[in-house]
Design a protein around this nucleic acid. Sequence first.
DNA 1: ACCTGAACACCGTTCAAGT
DNA 2: ACCTGAACACCGTTCAAGT
Lengths: 236, 236
Amino acid sequence: MARPRTPLLSRERIVAAALRLIDDEGLDALSTRRLATELSVSGPSLYNHFATKDDLLDAVVDSVIGEVDLSMFGTAAGAAGDAGAAGALGAAGVAGRTGSAWPQALRDWARSYRAALAAHPNIVPVLAQGPGRRPNALRLADAVFGHLVESGWPRGQATRIGALMRYFVTGSALASFAAGFPADAEVYDAADYPHLGEAHRLAGHRGTVDEGAFETGLEALLDGLALRYARLAERP
Amino acid sequence: MARPRTPLLSRERIVAAALRLIDDEGLDALSTRRLATELSVSGPSLYNHFATKDDLLDAVVDSVIGEVDLSMFGTAAGAAGDAGAAGALGAAGVAGRTGSAWPQALRDWARSYRAALAAHPNIVPVLAQGPGRRPNALRLADAVFGHLVESGWPRGQATRIGALMRYFVTGSALASFAAGFPADAEVYDAADYPHLGEAHRLAGHRGTVDEGAFETGLEALLDGLALRYARLAERP
DNA sequence: ACCTGAACACCGTTCAAGT
DNA sequence: ACCTGAACACCGTTCAAGT
């Protein structure tokens, strides 16, 4: 058949099929040949749309990050030509932002971030490698950092908060804590693991355990950060 | 040559070589054939010592977790025959434990946990899937949970704290936050990412940025948890 | 028991060939 | 420009054969 009049494939169709395959059968199940079969084309066809499998994975990852809500950080300040100079110093608090709104923004963002990632846990190891050159990942980093700085956090601290939030969110989305414990009670020999007598019941409560742990950790983190934010005002 | 008088391989030698390969070249570089070459044997030889590649990976992962210090949780209480019954209710605080020692234990453990994992970041995605049936991972979960319960945390909360600590530690060890940002300044177009003008310098400060973020997050978490621990006493 | 080579069904990627 | 089949150097794993 060679080249059809209307293309059989598109980057979007390939990315969607790849994500479905990764979600359903894991990262290892994504092979270019298998994916091509799923799309009813031959293996090498994919190379008309992506240079390598890694390039394809990058696109899949960025499509997932694109689902994260960033609206709580406000639309980009200064969409006009002077946007580049806005990040320096004077912007802190001037735009009528109260400053103490950052915990709620961080909370909302973290929940959306986790929801987007937890919907596709098998791809989290790839995405956790950092933004690289992926636009949605860079936009996310820009929005969080910008919001924290504009809320009065020193730049160094804002960087650390962006990092530690990513640690927590990616860690929570990477795999279910509860489901990591086999449901087979015989695993937990009381002589070896005296406190895990009930651990075999964890997997059955997977959703509530993981959700509860995430919420507890998120609130604890925000409380701890609020303590440090208050100290900023004391000794400027 | 067939079977040699003294075996060429052992599980220990295979695990050590596999970990070295994963550390040096990544998880994808670990193939049974490549590993066999590294060990100067033919590919199928490995199957005399491990049933599958996944079994081998399990052993590698557990050897890494075995490096985590658990001594801050104390040696197993009740090494005698009645160990199984100790996890119930009455043990809280009775053994002379002050209760408020748990934050320091958690801090020391988290640091050791992170150090062990961050030394082998490429294997963290595998290990983050949970303990499964790996003895060192189960021992770790048992020690943390047991310590928290004996410190007075309700079992449900202790589970959540074990989970959220794993989220944070695995997330921090999975990949460097700083190194995830390309060192190429041209990536950060001011029109697209107004606040990332200095992001190209992050990778150069990789160690301090990630260490600082981990320490900030750890202390914030511990502060937030201490707040909740104090509330336990107020309304029992 | 522990190693080998041969074999099977897979991979990612390149390339010449087709329209 | 976009798809194909053939080909290359790889995979994980099985198995019969050797000692």
